[in-house]
């Protein structure tokens, strides 16, 4: 999703009128911008800087300090690999490695084509099915590196959302 400059300005202006331009509300405004766009677009941060007088560099500094903010649109598909104890002993780290290699990204990153987000999560409560991987919330049980390859392939096709 690309965000037009107009969209940006409107959203930032509205959020600022809601929360006020004070420095103390910066995090709240940033959270709302992310809520709206799914991430913090560069133009939105620039807009915010212009309207508040806080420099974009400082806003970026603040935002990058918190794990919750992201600066590129989230991937189309979100793959989560469980790193809970049960999954771990059943080799979930191998799955993670396989995925990292296949996608060419580390956990917490998005592939360059915007297709996948890779995340690691703590126990998701299906230990009996370990090791577990979820794609867009759907649980895939007793995964093996081979099946991972298949899974990635399935979701790599044309846009299917």
């Amino acid at each position: 999703m690309t965000v037009s400059a107009q969209q940006n300005n409107a959203v930032v202006a509205e959020l600022l009128s809601l929360h006020g331009k004070d420095r103390s509300h910066l995090i709240t405004v940033l959270q709302d911008i992310q809520q709206h766009f799914g991430y913090l677009p560069r133009q939105a941060v620039t807009q915010l800087a212009q309207r508040t007088g806080i420099s974009a560099n400082e806003i970026y500094g603040v935002a990058t300090f918190y794990a919750q903010f992201r600066f590129i649109p989230p991937g189309e598909h979100i793959i989560q690999v469980c790193q809970g104890t049960a999954c771990h002993v059943r080799g979930s780290w191998q799955l993670l490695q396989e995925l990292q290699q296949r996608l060419g990204i580390k956990p917490g990153q998005t592939t360059a084509d915007g297709r996948f987000d890779l995340r690691r999560v703590a126990c998701i409560g299906c230990c009996a099915l370990a090791p577990v991987v979820t794609v867009d919330g759907n649980v895939h049980a007793r995964m093996t590196p081979k099946e991972i390859a298949l899974l990635v392939k399935q979701h790599s096709g044309k846009k299917d959302r």
Partner: peptide, 14 residues
């Protein structure tokens, strides 16, 4: 400004 956090903290720009 300082950007990013923990071991990745560095001096950067927006």
């Amino acid at each position: 400004d300082f950007t990013d956090r923990s071991s990745r903290t560095r001096i950067g720009r927006a």
